[in-house]
């Protein structure tokens, strides 16, 4: 298959580059629908890899790359079952999303996240699984999870620790604040800074350059410089499930999903 058109995303492979576009209203939330289509996407890697040098992940939504995990779906799903049954459901979802993120992380081609607008929580975790982030200068990055009583659950902390220094990692996690693209580039999260509206064009130009190089050397280099922190990723799932069982988390989620104001509830 050289292309796919789903309900939450689409992709097309052309001239050695896969273009994956997230397009799920309202803000590219990663819930069960997008997860299923991401699973289909990574399942195609085996067939696509021999003729693929690079993959660009971008968003078709205005002002946002991805808001991250679908907290409304998470809350509704968890609220529909008894408290004792919630961790099993959450763990099953996390196991699946971790498998997707790991597949993207170790894809046998170069992966580029072309980010514009807000890149939050699970959206940032998706970008972090990629080899490079090329960001519009209006992009903003955040891990707001601690503000709701849990931690990033899609592999965020182990990948941040793998790639970046402690000062930035702790600031991002412990404050939950959004950081601009200029700062993100200064600390090494962003590889290239793009002008407004130019991230995807620059990502395509970068991908075109990548296609010129030897595939074996490129894959070997990637494997050498980007080991997957598997042990920490396992521990992240355990810790997320442990924190999620607390009633305060459901209360915070309820407050968040019911708030439709311009500054959604975040303590």
């Amino acid at each position: 298959m050289k292309s796919f058109n789903g309900k939450t995303l689409r992709w097309e492979s052309r001239e050695g580059v896969i273009d994956l576009t997230l397009d799920h209203e309202p803000a590219n939330e990663i819930g069960t629908a997008m997860l299923a289509e991401l699973e289909e996407f990574v399942a195609a890697f085996g067939a696509l890899a021999p003729e693929t040098s690079a993959c660009i992940i971008s968003s078709a939504r205005k002002s946002i790359f991805s808001a991250g995990g679908d907290l409304r779906e998470l809350y509704a799903t968890a609220a529909a079952v008894a408290a004792k049954d919630r961790p099993a459901g959450v763990r099953a979802f996390l196991e699946r999303i971790h498998a997707v993120m790991n597949a993207i992380d170790e894809a046998p081609f170069v992966t580029i996240a072309a980010v514009h607008g807000a890149c939050l929580g699970g959206g940032l975790e998706l970008a972090l699984a990629c080899d490079m982030i090329i960001a519009d200068k209006m992009a903003r990055f955040a891990f707001p999870e601690l503000r709701l009583g849990f931690i990033p659950g899609f592999g965020g902390i182990p990948r941040l620790k793998r790639d970046l220094g402690n000062a930035f990692v702790r600031d991002l996690l412990f404050t939950g604040r959004t950081m601009n693209a200029t700062r993100a580039q200064a600390v090494g999260l962003v590889a290239q800074l793009a002008g407004e509206g130019e991230a995807l064009r620059i990502a395509r130009s970068t991908a075109a350059q990548i296609t010129k190089y030897d595939a074996v050397a490129r894959a070997a280099a990637k494997k050498f410089i980007k080991p997957i922190p598997r042990e920490e990723l396992r521990r992240e799932i355990d810790l997320f499930c442990e924190l999620f069982t607390r009633p305060s988390v459901m209360a915070a989620l309820k407050k968040f999903v019911e708030d439709s104001g311009p500054m959604p509830y975040l303590p």
């Binding site: 803000a27 002002s63 946002i64 607008g117 807000a118 200068k137 209006m138 992009a139 903003r140």
Partner: peptide, 9 residues
């Protein structure tokens, strides 16, 4: 909320 973030940037 997204426009608020845009303005912040």
């Amino acid at each position: 909320s997204l426009q608020t973030l845009e303005m912040l940037s």
